[in-house]
Amino acid sequence: MTTPAISIRDVTMDYPTPDGVNHVLDGVSYDVAEGHFVSIVGPSGVGKTTLLRLLTGLATPTGGEIQVRGQRLTSSPEGLAVVLQDYTRSLMPWLTVEKNIALPLRNAKLSRTATRERVEESLAEVGLTGTGRSYPWQLSGGMQQRVSIARAIAVRPSILVMDEPFASVDAQTRFDLEDLVLKVRDDFGITTLMVTHDIDEAVYLSDEIVVLYGKPAVVRDIVKIDIPFPRSQMTTRNDHRFADLRTHVYGMVRGLE
């Protein structure tokens, strides 16, 4: 068997609070296969974002461990890029779009022309050619989130982690961004992990959905989404299978099943 892209092994997370210890995650285990699109869903406050912070190396689990390609995670790993919900804060407002995208490339030690080319390619990939000189705050919310995605793929990551990436944009933009993410995944073969509270979105995008439930949270179910790719907003969402799966996941998240 091949090594999974990400291996979450019996991960436990406790936070000390003034009112005692807050147990957030209790023995969460899951393997993300190379190239898969996996969504993590669950009721709000269940610890989805905590798990995501652990996956990106921004926090360390109190128990268990997370491995990226067999390497135990101790800090933010190479080849992993992050897109956060709050694009207004995660994009640096004092940098232009192109400089925002170039910022994580500092580690890649590319030449100036190579950096510029990489920035242009990334902007083209997300359909924002020609906006490099603007400041992020001059763009619409959907465009800012596209910039975040461009910045993430500029480092040519093998793993993309997203935290509620489309939560702050309108419905139409959300559909466009969902399809953009699927295109990016296809173009670069990136293993993608997404935390979301939107079950339709999770079903539409994913190969597999991990349902977290309970306090402290455990993996309640792992749902394989056996709807063939390519998917489309027009047909996939009307598919019977889509309806069945979303009903099933919804029941899980709500604790109805």
Partner: peptide, 23 residues
């Protein structure tokens, strides 16, 4: 959020300080 973003890019401590926190 800015700090998390910068850390997830694996920017060096000095880059985070002079290129993210100070600006």
């Amino acid at each position: 959020v800015v700090l998390d973003t910068a850390k997830s890019f694996r920017l060096s401590r000095s880059a985070i300080l002079w290129r993210v926190r100070l600006p």
